[in-house]
Design a protein around this nucleic acid. Structure first.
Length: 519
DNA sequence: CAATCCAACTCTGGGGCTAAGTG
DNA sequence: CCACTTAGCCCCAGAGTTGGATT
């Protein structure tokens, strides 16, 4: 069926996703179909009444062929597109802020498509509208030459607000929230903010014992709200839970953080696996990532939790007298700038520092040192519950690595044999030439066993990383100065720990930290 | 025959993207 | 409501590998 341009475009959004699990979900299909119909002409509307009768495979094949063709481009064509992308980056990817040319983070407007909410999102599949010049607010200095709207159109507004950092904003149509174009993490303004964040966490380090003593005291308060606040803070501190703001029901996936935990998210075991007072957590957190943990707690915490649960239904709030703004107000009084998320930053960074101290040993070689670093990083990722879906190719790539290891082992034993033979030769011949041969063979054995060791370390690292994402903590929670200091202390080059982008983001820390930096 | 080169292929790290949090 | 940080997924450039040709 030949579609009108509007309806056709929306259909292609769906056709492109045919391989994706989304298109099997009822909500996704229902939302898509409803929004698709809005784009149809009245003839189309009367003809196309059921999604399950629509066959998108031809469109799907078309796009597959397109991407195949892109892959088959000649070297020359690839070079051309690369050059063109670079030109676009140079023209639109930078701005001048306070006389410095700075890289912009996301300088491309989000294209239209079908909304891909995470988890059980009630709005998945809805049409995400195309953004037009009339939707765009430009924010720049009064005297700056800002980009002009395309001919015949105008911006929604051009304003000059120097109290905010964004350059462009627009309102998206799914949640009605505002989207921004801001600077790259390597920019001065982001770097300073980042530095500040870690300095706040370091100030918490100085008073965290006092705060802990305080909330432990508050577990015995005669006021319910204070007990709830104290138990929640204990969880945030001990388990690095997120604050847990309220969310509008029905508009978003049902996920929770600490303050929004419900009765159904915890179970209490006076005894479990020979431990006393165990709390079992099972809930969906940010991005609908499951948090599952069983931890023994102090008796007082346990008794309090029993009290909070009294006479409640499973869908009732665990902390009914608490929310994030109450908690943060309290924290603000304990320390200037203290909020719930500072605990996550603090606990992540201090854990990295401790783990690095514990795991790094002077007699490790460089690959082993890096394994130790990654293990320290992993401890943090575990604490913060940074998970990932095991890569689709995980099993295969593990197998490949194992094959390499086996081959290397064979190579090694062959090399060892040759070395032995050469030594025997040298004993009988006793000439310079055979002595040299022994040296050569010895070198070969050493080289191969080092290669083997590297492969084995790599396999361990990869296996341990199967379901854990290190990137999030590395980028957002770990004071980079800890890593820089560690590199300097053990003469590991910084490139082994941070790639190019990360080095740009953490330039401030690389400049600043010496080998004796203490978080 | 070893060394070197190079094209073609494979695989993965990193960057882009944008949703979903916090305050 | 607004501005900002935090988050996982996806894709593909480019690094690494292979294998055959050439030196």
């Amino acid at each position: 069926m030949k579609l009108s341009p509007g309806a056709e475009e929306v259909a292609t959004f769906y056709a492109k996703m045919l391989d994706h699990e989304y298109t099997t979900k009822d909500i996704f299909r229902k939302n898509f179909f409803k929004d698709w119909r809005k784009e149809m002409t009245s003839e189309e509307k009367s003809k196309i009444t059921e999604l399950k009768k629509c066959d998108f495979t031809e469109m799907h094949e078309y796009f597959k062929a397109q991407s195949e063709a892109r892959k088959q481009m000649s070297k020359e064509e690839k070079r051309k597109t690369k050059e063109e992308n670079e030109r676009i980056l140079q023209e639109y990817g930078f701005c001048v802020m306070d006389n410095h040319r700075e890289r912009i983070g996301n300088f491309r407007i989000e294209p239209p498509g079908l909304f891909r909410g995470r988890g059980d999102h009630p709005k998945m599949g809805k049409l995400k509208r195309r953004i037009r010049p009339e939707d765009i607010i430009i924010n720049c200095s009064k005297d700056s030459a800002h980009p002009r709207p395309p001919p015949g159109t105008r911006w929604k507004e051009v304003r000059h607000d120097n109290k905010v950092t964004w350059l462009v904003s627009w309102t998206e149509n799914i949640q009605g929230s505002i989207k921004y174009i801001m600077l790259n993490p390597s920019s001065r303004i982001k770097g300073e903010k980042d530095w500040q964040k870690y300095e706040t966490a370091r100030r918490l380090k100085k008073c965290v014992e006092r705060i802990r003593a305080q909330y432990r005291e508050d577990w015995r308060s005669k006021e319910m709200r204070i007990r709830q606040r104290a138990v929640a803070l204990y969880f945030i501190d001990k388990l690095a839970l997120r604050a847990g703001n309220e969310k509008d029901e029905g508009e978003t996936a049902d996920t929770v953080g600490c303050c929004s935990l419900r009765v159904e998210h915890i179970r209490l075991y006076p005894q479990l696996e020979r431990q006393d007072f165990v709390v079992e957590f099972d809930f969906l957190g940010k991005d609908s990532i499951r948090y599952y943990n069983k931890i023994p707690v102090e008796k007082r915490v346990f008794k309090n939790l029993q009290l909070f649960l009294e006479n409640k239904q499973s869908e009732d709030d665990l902390f009914d007298r608490l929310n994030t703004s109450i908690l943060n107000k309290h924290l603000q009084e304990l320390m200037d700038g203290l909020t719930a998320k500072v605990f996550r930053t603090y606990n992540a960074s201090i854990t990295l520092q401790q783990q690095l101290k514990e795991l790094t040993s002077p007699d490790e070689n460089i690959p082993e040192k890096i394994l130790s670093y990654n293990r320290a990083n992993r401890a943090v990722a575990l604490l913060c519950n940074h998970q990932r879906a095991p890569p689709k190719t995980f099993e295969k790539s593990m197998q490949n690595l194992q094959i390499k290891i086996d081959e290397k082992k064979k190579q090694l034993s062959a090399a060892k044999k040759e070395h032995k033979a050469a030594k025997a030769d040298a004993r009988t011949l006793r000439d310079e030439k055979s002595k040299k041969a022994v040296e050569m063979k010895k070198k070969a054995v050493e080289r191969i066993s080092e290669q083997l060791m590297k492969l084995e370390v790599q396999a361990t690292d990869r296996e341990e990383n199967k379901q854990i994402a290190l990137g999030t903590s590395k980028l957002n929670y770990l004071d980079p100065r800890i890593s820089v200091a560690w590199c300097k202390k053990w003469t590991v080059s910084i490139e082994k720990i941070y790639n190019k982008t990360q080095r740009e983001k953490f330039a401030w820390a690389i400049d600043m930290a010496d080998d004796d930096f203490e978080f």
